[in-house]
Amino acid sequence: MTVPIFSAFLIALAAPAAPPAPAGDVAKGIAAWQAGEHGRAIALWAPLAEAGDRDALFNLGQAYRLGRGVQRDAARAATLFERAARQGHTGARTNLGLMLYGEGRRAEGLRWLRGAADAGEPRAMLVYGTALFNGEPLTRDMVTGYALVSRAAAKDLAPARTTLAEMDKLLSVDARREGVALAQALASGERELAEVLSPPAEVAVAPSAEPRPAPKPAAPAATPAPSRKTVEAPRPATTAKPASKPAATTSGAYAVQLGAFSRGGAAQSLYDRVKDMPALAGKSPAYVEGGGVTRLRITGFASMASAERACAALEARGQACYALKP
């Protein structure tokens, strides 16, 4: 059971459900959006979202998340995503889970990502699978974690392929074979994630617990003891080690994280591949070491909004990205 993010939403759940909105009207909004007519798209989606149409809720949430046609409002986007996610919208579950995860509310975000991972969403499978593999904050299940990341990699998600290669170094041949077999069974529908995981409390925090706030630089969250069997999922920064040849940077305390690697050279290689992307122009790499891995972060963003815009641009190019608060 998930923890409600917005208590006011419980009141909305108690209201009678409105009849489903015509799918054609949602499609008209999508056509307008693709034509660059963001305001018209929002005008079409807004009444449908108010009526409870999950696709309109998701699309309107995207508009608020990206700040297109409306002023950017992450809280409003999260509310809309949650309403759609509660109706089983896989994209909304993924976006909401990733937003919470990026804010440091990892256990809460993973609760949403589990449903999306069960539905086969590649980004959700990557993050949830990595958390299972690491055993934080989930109960460790390295084989199932490997299976989920394998499925994400099979869907051509580039960061999943990179993470899978790191996992290959840490698992025995037999364990990898077991993971591949499980991935195939999950993909075919022969098995379901719910029956594989330990019910009902695979999240190592009580469901009623308050979400953990993102750690502040002055008092960083405790780092788990180093383990050779850990491939870290993205999480908030502790201390950063600048690259030997940093690019010219603009001032700003916000950052984005692109990946975590057991070899520092892999982090440098990823930066070499993405450093010329326009979204990272004028920003500097930082290599954060801890827990036996090196995390690649790009620093110098003036606001959370600018960091999330950069992530949106990178994600459109197939690169996983998480915006981080200072």
Rank of each mutant, 00 (worst) to 15 (best):
R151K: 03
L193I: 01
C321F: 07
R297Y: 04
P200L: 15
R54G: 07
A117P: 03
P16C: 07
G67F: 09
R111T: 09
L57Y: 00
A160N: 00
R68Q: 13
A233C: 03
E82V: 08
T230W: 05
W45N: 07
L164Q: 01
A181I: 12
P200Q: 11
A46H: 12
L132F: 04
R106H: 08
D276L: 15
G292H: 02
A117K: 03
G61P: 00
A21V: 14
V3C: 02
D118S: 11
A23D: 08
A124S: 04
A310V: 05
N95W: 01
A183G: 15
R114W: 06
A181R: 12
Y254K: 02
A75K: 12
A78R: 10
S172P: 03
A46I: 12
P22E: 15
L66S: 14
N134I: 14
E308I: 08
V3D: 00
L113S: 03
S306M: 04
M142D: 02
M277G: 00
A31C: 03
A8M: 11
R263Y: 11
F261K: 00
G290T: 07
P4D: 10
Y128P: 03
R176I: 10
A152F: 01
N134D: 10
R106S: 08
D272V: 11
P220I: 14
E37N: 13
S172T: 15
E82H: 07
A201Q: 13
M167K: 09
P211F: 12
A323G: 06
A41H: 08
P200W: 09
G104H: 11
T144S: 13
L197P: 01
G264A: 14
R151Q: 14
G291P: 01
K275H: 13
T139W: 04
I11G: 00
N95L: 09
A8Q: 08
G135C: 14
F261A: 00
A214V: 05
A84G: 07
